[in-house]
Structure formats: structure tokens, C-alpha cells
């Protein structure tokens, strides 16, 4: 069976353009609109605790983020043009990976800025009162058992498929144990992120329990989705690796995988944590809560 090369190229180009649009235009635009909406709807004079620095500072940061996204877009176009001019057959898989790395860079920088913002917020937090819920948090309060089961089954399926194509010989060459350990470590990382979110110290000192529960649910779901998508992709990629006529589909599969990770990562967070649902009253001055025992 031979796959039409032109058709594959066309499909790859379409998928790659969709990656460009999704990561350099669609999600950055949503993030910028979201941040601007928060600042417009909850101004510093009404919600002083939301701002650790003057409003202008955050507006500048949003502009910087927008500029970085535009720069990333231009950088990707330059990389694509260079790869076209380099040789007869540019490494499309590498191209997808490099562009993805460039595209997510502004989002990573934004995450670092967010972490710094919460750190500063914690420093400014003046209340000597500390509040906690006496309800224990359990894993299945946040993740459905079915979804977790699917993630575990798909991980085991991947391990079996990978070992099957390596004749169940773990020590066939150094690559097999390294791959298995690497994949397992990434899966453990997903577990750690969720565990840290569930039992770790809260980032935002003002957030109420309902908001925290929503955040934990979101992180839990994202971690499980990421695990499922990764296992699925690796299983398909392992199978495809053993059928050389499918090699030409690899770059397209990689791009689809990265886009799925984005949709079920950043996308899920935006969908699940809606601004309207967040309790912003905690950022006002002199909030009196009467839910505690004291």
C-alpha cells in the first residue's frame, strides 16, 4: 500500500497551518482578551488586593506578551522559509517540534510571570488569619475513576505495544529501557503535578475553597487528558515506526499530538475556569466571612 505523497504533503501543510493558527493566534488572543477583561471588570480602586503593582504595569506585561506571540509567529515563518531553502527534504518532524517550542515560549514566559505575581501577592497578604476546610480532599472527588482507568489502561497498552515491537526484550539495546523509563517519568510527573495541586500550599492566598476545588479539578483533568493523549500518540507512533510506508505521516501525527496537548491543556483550563465563576469579592477591602467556627 502506497500513500500518495502529494496528498500527505497537503494534509501535513494543513495540519501545520492549524498548529500555527492555534498556538500563535487563537489561544494567545483568548488569553489576552481574558486578562484585559479581568482588568476592565475588576479595576484597582474596587479590587485593590488583585493588584500588587499599578494597573499600567500589568497592561505593559499584556502588551509584551502580545508582542512575544507576534515575534514567535514571525520566527516560525522564518524557520519554515529557511527549512524550505535548505535542501530537498527538510526534516518536517524537527520543523514541527522547533516551531512548537518557539510558539509555546511566550506562554511559558506568561506562566513564569503569573507565578511571580502570586509570590508577590503572598508577600503583600497581610491577614494573620489562616483558613482551612475540614473536608479531606480525595483523588476521586476531582477525577472520574473511568477517566483515570482509561489513562492507566492506555499507558499499559503503550508499554505492551512498545515491548511487542521490541520482542519483549528490554535489554535489546539501550534505547528500550531509556524510552520506558522516560515515558514512565513523564506519567509520574503528571501525577506529581496533580498531587502538588491537591495537597500543596495554595498559590493565591485570597482564593476561596470553591475556586481552589475548581482549580484542582481542572489540573487533575488536564493531567489525565495529557497522559491519555501521550499514551495514544506514542502507541500510534510505535506502530507506525514499524511500517516504513507510514513514515511520511509522522510529522503530521506529531503536529496533531502537540495541538491536542494544547487544546486539552491551555484550552481545557480556559474552558473550565471561567472568569464569571471566580469569586473576585475576596480582592475587595474588608471582606467579613462568617463561615468559620471561630
Amino acid at each position: 500500500m502506497h500513500i500518495n505523497t502529494i496528498m500527505v504533503e497537503l494534509l501535513f501543510n494543513l495540519v501545520f497551518i492549524s498548529q500555527m493558527i492555534l498556538l500563535s493566534w487563537y489561544y494567545p488572543r483568548i488569553i489576552i482578551n481574558r486578562l484585559t477583561k479581568v482588568m476592565d471588570k475588576y479595576p484597582p480602586h474596587e479590587y485593590p488586593k488583585l493588584y500588587t503593582k499599578p494597573k499600567d504595569y500589568y497592561q505593559k506585561k499584556i502588551t509584551t506578551f502580545a508582542d512575544l506571540c507576534t515575534l514567535a509567529q514571525i520566527a516560525c515563518l522564518v524557520i519554515v522559509l529557511i527549512s524550505w531553502n535548505l535542501g530537498n527534504s527538510p526534516n518536517e518532524e524537527m520543523l514541527v517540534l522547533i516551531c512548537f517550542a518557539v510558539q509555546v515560549l511566550p506562554i511559558i514566559i506568561l506562566s513564569i510571570m503569573a507565578a511571580k505575581y502570586f509570590k508577590k501577592m503572598k508577600k503583600v497578604f497581610q491577614s494573620s488569619n489562616r483558613e482551612a476546610n475540614l473536608q479531606p480532599r480525595r483523588i476521586f472527588d476531582f477525577i472520574s475513576a473511568k477517566l483515570l482507568g482509561i489513562a492507566i489502561i492506555l499507558y499499559v497498552v503503550y508499554l505492551l505495544v512498545y515491548l511487542y515491537f521490541n520482542n519483549f526484550n528490554i535489554f535489546l539495546d539501550g534505547k528500550v529501557p531509556l524510552t520506558l523509563i522516560g515515558v514512565t517519568l513523564i506519567q509520574l510527573y503528571f501525577c506529581m503535578v496533580f498531587y502538588w495541586k491537591m495537597y500543596g500550599r495554595k498559590q493565591n492566598p485570597y482564593s476561596v475553597n470553591e475556586d481552589r476545588v475548581r482549580e484542582i479539578k481542572t489540573v487533575g483533568k488536564i493531567a489525565v487528558y495529557a497522559s491519555i493523549i501521550m499514551s495514544l500518540y506514542l502507541t500510534v507512533a510505535t506502530i507506525m515506526d514499524n511500517f516504513s510506508y507510514l513514515d511520511s505521516l509522522d510529522p503530521m501525527m506529531l503536529s496533531i499530538y502537540l495541538q491536542m496537548i494544547t487544546i486539552f491543556g491551555i484550552g481545557a483550563e480556559i474552558r473550565m475556569i471561567k472568569i464569571e465563576d471566580i469569586n473576585f469579592d475576596v480582592y475587595k477591602n474588608n471582606i467579613i466571612k462568617d463561615t468559620s467556627v471561630a
Binding site: S128, R130, E131, A132, N209, T291, S292, V293, A294
Partner: peptide, 9 residues
Amino acid sequence: MHITIDIDD
């Protein structure tokens, strides 16, 4: 059910 402690108490 919430509990509150005062670290300056």
C-alpha cells in the same frame, strides 16, 4: 466546614 487560626494570637 471551615476553621480559622490566628498566627498572631
